[in-house]
Every structure is written in structure tokens, then in C-alpha cells.
């Protein structure tokens, strides 16, 4: 297994290298002189020269890239132009907030999507299947920032049940933390629940028509035993893999969700950085997201191998 993980890590390395080149290359897209763009209103030649020196922009491009990559490998993503804080410190500050939001969203998605998928598959062609499919299609089509706004309007403004915005760490005040995060997590989890429902349904339909399920029924097992003990366990594997792969979607969704509910997380960090022209922060966030995505891909592969005896035997 360790050899398998090492091999997969080795395959991910060139991808990571290209990601780093692309992220570094983003600053080439800045129209005109990047230093002018970064300096904003301050066009004082001394300031421009200082920024140019600070960012080593006088060096040839490959040298600039290698210097930047060397820093990144040591955890140095540069310094935020706005706050003066190291980008890595900013990311580490904001990441736990987004992880809490993402985990809660995933729990919501699994609690809604997986049972709905099972029911839809077992009752294929029936009213429940039809309803689940319509709800899933709606979940995939609804813009989550609009859903967030509508929920704030209904739950916070009209009913006054939950706060419309804010954040409290789960380690400081768990109750307040859950109060502020329930609505954003639901909003972020809606699209994922729809995707999980569709995949669970499709995986269950594949398993339910397998020979061993027919045998289990022939042996006289009840419908519930067949579904939960024999079918669901086998259908769960692709669903677990998919959940890990949905990580990227979760982070992208978090950008908008955090913006609507004013949650000081990773997503809000990138949006604020965009408006403050804090390009080092934008680069840092994009790079970290890509590394996280590749890591989740690796975890998904390893989990698939661990859970599937046939794949384990093939190693």
C-alpha cells in the first residue's frame, strides 16, 4: 500500500509543478506594468522602484519563478500588500473556518443525498423517485448565493430564528458557532446533496440488478436486509470516492457562501484579496486550493483501494 501511495504521489508531482507555473503565470495577465497595478493610486517612482525590488521584478522571468517556487516550498507565499502579514499566516488563520463550513456542508449533503438516492433507486419509476429527481435537479440548478439570500430573508429577517451573518469558532462558543454556521452549511451542501443523490441512485441501481442480490432475495432475506446489508455497502464505494472529489466544488462554493453570510474564511479571503489587488494572496489561495484538491484525489484513490478487496488484491 505504501508503494502505491508513493507511486501516486510521484504522478502528482508534475501536475503540481505545472499548477505552480500557472499560478505564477497569473501575474503575467495583468494589463500593462504589474507594478503600476499593484501600487494602485500611488504612482510615486520611489514606491514603484521599492515594489519592483521587493518582488524581484528586475530579474529574468525563470529566475523570478524559481525564487518564488523556492519560497513556496518553504511555506513562504509572499507578503500581503494590504496587511503586511505573510500570506501563509493569513491562509492558516482562515482555513479552519472554511474547513468547519465544508465539513458541516458535507454532513448535510450526506444526510440528505444518500438516503434520498437509496429511496429513489429502490422505488425506481415511482412517485418518490420522480420527486427525488426533481429535487436533485433543482439543487443542481439553484445558484447557491440566491438560495442563501432567500434563506436570510425567510429564516433571519422574517422569522428571526437564526443570525443572518457572523462567525464564532466552535472551540470558543459551540452553540453560537452552530447557530451561525447551520444556514451557510445547508446552502453550501444543497448542490452536493443533489450530486450525491444522483450518484447513490445510479450506484444502487447498478448493484440492485446484480446476481448476488437476486440470490440474496431468493434466500428469503427481507427487502430492508437486501438494501442495507448487501446493496448499500457495495454502492457506497463510488459515493465515498465522489465525496472526496467534491472537495473542489465545496471550496468554490464556499467563496460565495462566505461572502453572503460574512464568514471570515478562505473564500472571503480570496474575494477581499481580489478587490484589494493583493495578488500574492490570490496566488497563495489558488495554489493551496489546487494542492488540497490533488491531496483529496489521492485520499479518494487510497480509500477506494482500502475498501475494495478486488482492488487491494490487484496491488
Amino acid at each position: 500500500m505504501l508503494i502505491y501511495i508513493a507511486k501516486r504521489l510521484l504522478v502528482a508531482l508534475p501536475t503540481l509543478l505545472i499548477v505552480s507555473m500557472l499560478v505564477f503565470g497569473l501575474q503575467m495577465l495583468l494589463p500593462g506594468d504589474p507594478v503600476l497595478a499593484m501600487a494602485g493610486e500611488d504612482r510615486d517612482p520611489e514606491t514603484l522602484a521599492r515594489i519592483r525590488e521587493q518582488l524581484n521584478l528586475n530579474d529574468p522571468l525563470p529566475v523570478q519563478y524559481l525564487r518564488w517556487l523556492g519560497g513556496v516550498l518553504q511555506g513562504d507565499f509572499g507578503t500581503s500588500l494590504r496587511t503586511g502579514q505573510p500570506v501563509s499566516e493569513l491562509i492558516l488563520q482562515k482555513l479552519p473556518v472554511t474547513i468547519q463550513l465544508a465539513v458541516m456542508a458535507m454532513i448535510f449533503a450526506a444526510l440528505i443525498g444518500i438516503p434520498a438516492g437509496i429511496i429513489a433507486a429502490v422505488r425506481k419509476g415511482g412517485v418518490l423517485d420522480w420527486t427525488a429527481n426533481i429535487v436533485a435537479l433543482s439543487g443542481l440548478s439553484i445558484p447557491n448565493f440566491w438560495l442563501g439570500i432567500m434563506l436570510i430573508l425567510l429564516v433571519s429577517v422574517n422569522l428571526g430564528w437564526l443570525p443572518a451573518s457572523g462567525y464564532e469558532s466552535i472551540f470558543v462558543d459551540p452553540v453560537r458557532s452552530l447557530e451561525t454556521m447551520i444556514m451557510p452549511a445547508f446552502v453550501l451542501g444543497t448542490g452536493l446533496a443533489a450530486t450525491l443523490m444522483r450518484h447513490t441512485r445510479s450506484a444502487m441501481l447498478g448493484v440492485l440488478s446484480a446476481d448476488y442480490i437476486r440470490t440474496a432475495r431468493a434466500k428469503g432475506l427481507t427487502g430492508r436486509q437486501v438494501v442495507l446489508k448487501h446493496s448499500f455497502r457495495n454502492a457506497l464505494l463510488p459515493v465515498i470516492t465522489l465525496s472526496a472529489l467534491l472537495f473542489g466544488e465545496l471550496l468554490a462554493g464556499a467563496v460565495l457562501t462566505e461572502q453572503i453570510f460574512t464568514i471570515p474564511g478562505f473564500g472571503k479571503l480570496i474575494v477581499d484579496a481580489v478587490f484589494n489587488r493583493d495578488y500574492a494572496v490570490v496566488q497563495g489561495v489558488v495554489l493551496c486550493t489546487a494542492v488540497g484538491f490533488l491531496l483529496m484525489n489521492l485520499i479518494a484513490d487510497v480509500v477506494s483501494v482500502l475498501l475494495n478487496p478486488r482492488m487491494r488484491a490487484a496491488l
Partner: peptide, 24 residues
């Protein structure tokens, strides 16, 4: 393919936000 893998590793919306930020 490696180039495509690298692009796919960056979530769609985050990539679009970053590009829109740099392009203006």
C-alpha cells in the same frame, strides 16, 4: 494531459475569480 490535470486541479469558480481578478 499533465497541463489539463493541472488546470482541473483548480476549482472552476476559484480559477475564474483569479483570472477575472488579474484580467480586470
Amino acid at each position: 494531459s499533465r497541463f489539463t490535470d493541472a488546470l482541473l486541479a483548480m476549482p472552476f469558480l476559484i480559477m475564474a475569480i483569479a483570472l477575472a481578478a488579474f484580467l480586470g
